[in-house]
Design a protein around this nucleic acid. Structure first.
Lengths: 210, 210
DNA sequence: TAGATTGTTAATCGATTAACAATC
DNA sequence: TAGATTGTTAATCGATTAACAATC
């Protein structure tokens, strides 16, 4: 349904629209104009209207946009109404943080299993999810319709494990490691989160403001 | 030293250059051409040369770039040689994950204290850093030359606390919450990490590939 | 109807890519 | 010197901004 070839810049702004609209909605606000939304978001009315019109005309001339309606439309564009089953691999600190970050279920992603190499952690639970050994991944994925893997282990561990994950059919990765999955497999969907890159960017900006 | 007005796109590519050069360096590789680096990084030689020349001519015609030399130059541009003292506020799961993520010290950021509202956690330690109550922030920041705060608490908590942090002189924030600090204070440096936006982007891309 | 605000086209601006002279 | 590769200018491409007709 969403048009082909929408630029990545537009796509990365959609979650932000969704967040602001969710907040307006929870405040009971029923309508919003592109001008007002732009001033809330430090954006421009032009950009908001252009972005939305990549997907359809969701507003009403002379009125503006229905907050609840637009929120719902953007949710659908983002696929938040699609349920996904997700496993997490690497139950270190970052893995634990992600695993206990309940809000991801609101976005359609259900974490159903956690896998870990370190034997000390196996058998313990996180949010009632049992931590299992790595060698059970293949069977588990095949039996449980898993489409997404969260990778919270080091680069080298991902390098060793990626073929196994790919071979049992996982094509979607939320990757917190520095391993470059897209370079190895072309038919996968990868979202990288590089926390150290983010901190380096902060470091740069601090230097500039002196 | 780095020129004014370098675009954010260029800046956000610098950490990635730094990572790839660090890896090449650790593999003992001494020189690299823009063409080879581009093919490693799925970039283009033109873009790499343009990006670098925003800051200076680091290469040598007919030869390429010294890996160690360029890595060091980019490190300086990013300000990784500048030491920073950082506090973390919010010792929940995400806060713990960040606090135990040792590698940030390599980037010049030293975590010296953790603050938390929940009394149960106070007095316990994370990585030998004592967790202290929120009301000690002001004194601590003034006594310890803190320039950066990591915010790993919910939006509402940041909203309540941001004035306190600003008033005791913190001007640099690594913000994991959805509170928009830049809108309230204009003379601050903020790097936002929105994990839920990242997952929504993954959700969108999964929808596209079906 | 008049006012408001969208959807959409046109104009501008900036970023990326290509080309090539400089030079190691 | 000849080959390689940079630094930098020029050309292209795409994204953002502005303008305005359509319309609620």
């Amino acid at each position: 349904m969403p048009k082909e070839g929408v630029s990545i810049q537009v796509i990365r702004r959609l979650p932000r629209y969704y967040r602001y609209l969710s907040e307006l909605d929870s405040e009971g606000i029923e309508k919003i104009s592109s001008t007002k939304l732009a001033s809330m978001m430090n954006s421009t009315a032009s950009q908001i209207r252009q972005d939305l019109n990549c997907f359809g005309g969701f507003g009403q001339q002379g009125y503006g946009y229905s907050v609840a309606g637009l929120r719902s439309e953007i949710g659908k564009i983002l696929g938040l109404d699609q349920p996904h089953n997700m496993i997490l691999i690497g139950a270190g600190n970052l893995g634990k943080a992600i695993a206990t970050h309940l809000s991801f279920e609101k976005l359609g992603f259900k974490l159903t299993a956690i896998f870990e190499k370190d034997e000390k952690l196996i058998g313990t639970t996180l949010r009632d999810i049992e931590i299992m050994p790595d060698d059970r991944i293949e069977d588990y994925v095949k039996e449980n319709q898993i489409d997404t893997a969260v990778l919270t282990m080091p680069k080298e561990a991902v390098k060793k494990m990626i073929d196994k994950l790919y071979d049992c059919g996982i094509r979607s990765y939320w990757n917190f490691s520095h391993y470059d999955i897209s370079k190895k497999y072309l038919d996968v969907t990868v979202e990288n989160v590089h926390l150290s890159d983010s901190l380096m960017t902060l470091s740069y900006m601090m230097n500039q403001s002196d």
